[in-house]
Amino acid sequence: MPRISQQQKDHNRAKIIAAAGERFRACGIDGVGIDALMGTAGMTHGGFYNHFGSKEDLAHEVFRQGFNDSLSEVDRIVGDHPDSARAALAAIIDSYVTPVHRDDPEQGCASAALAADAARHGSGTQAEYARGLEGYLAAISDLLLADQPENQRDPERARREAIALFSQMVGSLVVARAVAQAAPGLSDEIIASNHHQLMQH
C-alpha cells in the first residue's frame, strides 16, 4: 500500500480541523462523535488517530485555528482603516455583533461559539481560549489608545475598557443565540441594543 505524502497528510489534517471547527461551533465539543466528525471530513474513524492523540487534542487545535482566523480578519479590518482607529473599531463591532454572526456559528468566531466548551474542557482548552482572547484584547486596546491624544494614553485603562467591550460583544451573541428560536424578536433586540451601545463607546 503506497504511503501518503506529507502534503496529503497535511491536507487531511486541515480537513479534519475545518470539519471539527464547524461541528464543534454548531453542536459543542461533546455533541459530536469522532465517527460523525470524520464522516463530515470524508474520512474513516481509524484515520483520526493518524493526526490526533485524542479528541481533546483536536479541540485545542480547533481553538487555535479558530482564533487565528478571527484575528487575521481583525488585522484585515484594521488595515482597511489605516487613518482612523475609531472607524476600525466600529467596523470590528459591525462585523461581530450582527444577526448574520448570531445565525451562523459554524462560520463565526470561536470566542462566542465555544466559550461554554472552554469552561468545561479544562486548562489545556482554556489556555488556547485565553491566548485567542489576549489577541482580541491587544488589538482593541491598541485601537483605543490610538484614538486618544498621545499625552492622555493610559494602557491600563485601555485594557480595562477592551475587556469590558469584548465581553459585551461575546455576551451579546451568547445570549441572543440562547433565545433565537423561541423568541426571535427578543434575540434581534439583544443584538440591536448591544450593537447600538457598543457603537456609542
Rank of each mutant, 00 (worst) to 15 (best):
P2C: 06
R3A: 13
D10S: 14
H11T: 09
N12V: 01
A14W: 01
K15R: 13
K15H: 07
I16M: 10
A18L: 12
A18M: 09
A20I: 03
A20Q: 07
G21W: 01
C27K: 10
C27H: 14
G28V: 00
I29T: 05
V32K: 09
G33H: 13
I34R: 14
I34V: 15
D35Y: 12
D35I: 08
M38S: 06
M38T: 00
A41V: 00
M43Y: 04
T44H: 04
H45T: 00
G46H: 14
G46N: 14
G46P: 08
F48W: 04
F48H: 03
N50K: 11
N50I: 00
G53Y: 07
S54C: 09
S54L: 10
S54Q: 04
K55C: 02
E56R: 08
L58S: 09
H60E: 10
F63V: 05
F63W: 05
Q65E: 15
Q65N: 15
G66W: 06
F67I: 07
N68A: 15
D69F: 05
S70E: 14
L71F: 08
E73M: 10
D75W: 05
R76S: 14
R76N: 12
R76D: 13
R76M: 09
I77E: 02
V78W: 06
V78D: 08
D80C: 08
H81M: 10
S84N: 01
S84Y: 00
R86P: 08
R86A: 15
A87C: 03
A88W: 00
L89V: 04
A90L: 09
D94L: 02
D94K: 00
S95C: 04
Y96G: 02
V97S: 04
T98Q: 12
P99T: 01
H101L: 06
R102A: 02
D103Q: 03
D103N: 01
E106Q: 14
E106P: 08
G108N: 09
A113M: 07
A113Q: 04
A116K: 10
A116T: 05
A116D: 14
D117K: 07
A118K: 05
A118G: 07
G122I: 08
S123N: 06
Y129A: 15
R131Y: 11
R131P: 10
G135P: 01
Y136H: 10
I140R: 12
I140W: 11
S141K: 06
D142E: 14
D142Q: 11
L144Y: 02
L145W: 12
L145D: 13
Q148R: 13
P149K: 12
P149F: 15
R153K: 10
D154G: 08
P155T: 08
R157I: 02
R159M: 13
R159F: 12
A162T: 08
I163V: 15
I163N: 14
V170E: 14
S172I: 01
L173S: 07
V174R: 15
A176D: 10
R177P: 07
A180F: 11
Q181H: 12
S187N: 06
D188V: 00
E189H: 12
I191E: 08
I191S: 09
I191N: 09
N194H: 15
L198G: 12
